[in-house]
């Protein structure tokens, strides 16, 4: 166990898996120099045949990944910013997510698509989207969104042993955040949530970038005598509903926090599923904290108005679990 930065943890997981499995290749724009930091040193270690610095050609990259994966390679396709997933989206939506199904299960597509998603750094609308709901709606891809370096390592390792397309979406601008990372072969099975804080009054489910403000919100709520159970699903597809419903069984109240736009967000999906499967557990209406249905603006003043921070999470919790909210909602 040692303290490492998020990008280091991802880098370590990739390097260990490449060492273990010679069929893994990496491709992406500037992966040799790695402005993000997560593919740093790989070309020196594994050579240019396995680490391919690509032209700026997302549509062929995302499609090449499918072709190469169907024919014997295990492919890491680094798409840099999440918004460039859109540029390469055709092969993702029409090939990667469907080919195995359409061919009646004849092929496996072991692909790890990587990208940084979300805003908060004044890079404006074309570099700040959170597209995990869009990807979730494809049905045929798995999605991991680690919020801590240790989780990142374990999830990347699991993703690189999975025989399906998996998206690793890391919160942009958070690559430098440090956390404990277990040494060696540390694997977290896909689809396993973690309760980052235990509590009895309210369940807060936070995704990816929203875990950090949610932790801060939990601290603030604790000072007000409200104990929140914070669930980090870590994997969006498959989603660990057992963990969410298990927490809800204790609390009876649910707030879901997502940096995606609210309409058809993963928060919406979780809320709908909980309403279907756990309606009897609910003592209060479910609250979603998400981005309103606008693009992400550049000016920090505007961006702050749009992206949820810890105060908005506290506010949503108080609405359903504060003394006022608790009285109103039993």
């Amino acid at each position: 166990m040692a303290k490492k930065r998020m990008v280091q943890a991802i880098n370590e997981a990739i390097a260990e898996e490449m060492e273990r499995d010679p069929s893994i290749i990496v491709m992406g724009e500037d992966v040799h120099i790695s402005p993000v930091g997560d593919t740093r040193g790989l070309i020196e270690r594994f050579g240019a045949a396995r680490v391919r610095n690509t032209p700026i050609s997302e549509s062929v990259m995302s499609g090449m990944a499918v072709g190469a994966a169907a024919t014997g390679l295990r492919v890491i396709c680094h798409l840099f910013y999440g918004n460039f997933i859109y540029t390469g989206f055709d092969a993702i939506a029409n090939q990667a997510a469907k080919l195995r199904y359409m061919l009646g299960g004849q092929v496996k597509l072991p692909i790890l698509y990587m990208a940084m998603i979300g805003g908060g750094r004044s890079v404006a609308a074309q570099h700040s989207d959170s597209m995990h709901p869009l990807l979730m709606n494809l049905g045929g891809v798995k999605i991991v969104m680690p919020a801590a370096p240790g989780d990142a390592k374990g999830l990347v390792k699991a993703a690189l042993r999975d025989d399906n397309p998996v998206f690793l979406l890391q919160a942009a601008g958070r690559g430098g955040e440090a956390g404990e990372v277990p040494d060696g072969d540390y694997v977290i099975p896909l689809g396993k949530a973690e309760e980052k804080r235990a509590g009895d009054d309210v369940t807060v489910v936070a995704l990816g970038s929203m875990v950090k403000p949610a932790l801060k919100a939990c601290d603030e709520l604790a000072k007000q005598g409200i104990s929140a159970s914070l669930i980090d699903p870590r994997t969006v597809v498959p989603m660990d509903y057992d963990a969410i419903l298990g927490s809800l069984r204790r609390t009876g109240r649910l707030v879901v926090v997502d940096e995606a736009r609210k309409s058809c967000s993963v928060a919406s999906e979780i809320a709908a599923t909980v309403a279907e499967r756990g309606f009897h557990l609910l003592k209060a209406p479910i609250r979603r904290v998400a981005v309103e249905d606008v693009a992400i603006p550049y000016s920090p003043v505007l961006e702050k108005a749009v992206i949820p921070g810890h105060q908005r999470i506290v506010g949503a919790v108080l609405e359903i679990a504060g003394s006022e909210g608790a009285r109103r909602h039993g």
Partner: peptide, 26 residues
Amino acid sequence: CGGKGGSMHVADVSKGILGANGIVGG
């Protein structure tokens, strides 16, 4: 652009400038 776009989206449509672009090739 009222602060919405920033460096990568400067545009003056009244002068025939449809804008800078954050998407390479966009």
